[in-house]
């Protein structure tokens, strides 16, 4: 039998899943820089970018509705069994606490009372990060609970989306870090080069974890139900091969670039060599952008491989 692939969720949902995953993880990394280093110059743009990503993702979700003007029904009808409803609650919590946290970090909102209290900001950042993790995980659960698509119906899918979300979130913070570093005088830049080294190391580790989960996910599905196995075949040998390989190329190349820079920079530091702008800021931008494009391609490819349950008499 020819596999029947779901055809109702396309690019808009892929963008939503991608931006939700990346946005949630960006908040976690942004809060790390505030909580451990009090580095507002990274935490503030990171939290703001994270909010923009999630809000933009939610807009794509609303645009995908047949009746976008009635999206509020998904909130007020309180259908607690639906992961779309649960998702709107998680997104709302993230947007509220993320906005409060970002306000306390951004220079234009320093008049808010909690901006002066480090304890309050730590607590808000922790809550926003917890919601960020929920947003990132939820994007995988939304698909993972569907028995009608055996390829998606696996605990490995949320794990894969979390790993990919974290990789793209770290990459997004890498871009913010590189841009902040470029704006600074040379003597201040060293600090950002140090952060860049940390972020590059994290990105490479998380991409490694993502590849491990991906391999397990595919291997198990290959020997799973016929629909799941045909979805894997479509990605490895069929019509989705090109986009799947593009995803792998982008993410692996990005991680390799960041990993290489991490080692070069470490060697530079040990040898006392100058941290050039190119090495410290421009090249990491390339690696981060590749990982982010890869994250989007992953969501799109997984959606396109949604082979539905099949029946024969």
């Amino acid at each position: 039998m020819e596999p029947v692939v779901q055809h109702v969720w396309g690019w808009l949902i892929a963008l939503y899943l991608f931006l939700g995953g990346m946005g949630g993880a960006t908040m976690i990394v942004a809060h790390y820089f505030y909580a451990s280093k009090r580095e507002k110059s990274l935490a503030a743009p990171g939290a703001l970018a994270s909010l923009i990503m999630v809000v933009l993702g939610a807009l794509f979700l609303i645009l995908d509705l047949e009746k976008p003007e009635k999206f509020y029904l998904a909130v007020i009808k309180f259908q607690t069994s639906s992961w779309v409803f649960r998702g709107t609650m998680i997104l709302s919590g993230f947007i509220v606490f993320g906005a409060l946290y970002a306000a306390g970090l951004l220079p234009w909102f320093q008049w808010v009372p909690w901006a002066k209290s480090e304890r309050a900001m730590d607590a808000l950042g922790l809550i926003a990060s917890a919601f960020g993790l929920l947003v990132t995980t939820y994007t995988g659960i939304l698909l993972g609970v569907l028995k009608a698509v055996p390829f998606w119906h696996s605990p490995a899918l949320p794990a894969l989306f979390v790993a990919s979300g974290l990789a793209t979130g770290i990459a997004a913070m890498g871009i913010i870090n590189a841009l902040q570093g470029l704006r600074r005088p040379v003597d201040e830049r060293v600090r950002f080069v140090g952060y860049c080294t940390t972020l590059s190391k994290w990105a490479a580790i998380v991409v490694g974890a993502e590849m491990f989960i991906l391999a397990l996910y595919y291997y198990v599905n290959m020997f799973g139900p016929a629909e799941a196995s045909s979805a894997v075949s479509m990605m490895l040998f069929g019509e989705l091969r090109r986009s799947f390989l593009a995803y792998l190329d982008f993410v692996l190349l990005g991680a390799a670039l960041l990993s290489m820079l991490y080692h070069v920079r470490k060697a530079d530091l040990i040898a006392g060599r100058d941290q050039s702008v190119v090495k410290s800021c421009i090249l990491p931008l390339g690696g981060a952008i590749l990982i982010i494009i890869g994250g989007l391609l992953l969501r799109r490819t997984i959606l396109e491989a949604g082979v539905m349950t099949q029946f024969a008499p």
């Binding site: 779901q6 969720w9 509705l65 047949e66 998904a74 639906s82």
Partner: peptide, 14 residues
Amino acid sequence: CIGCKYCVVACPYD
């Protein structure tokens, strides 16, 4: 119905 299409994907019987 807001047309989120989640039910379309959730129905195993197409």
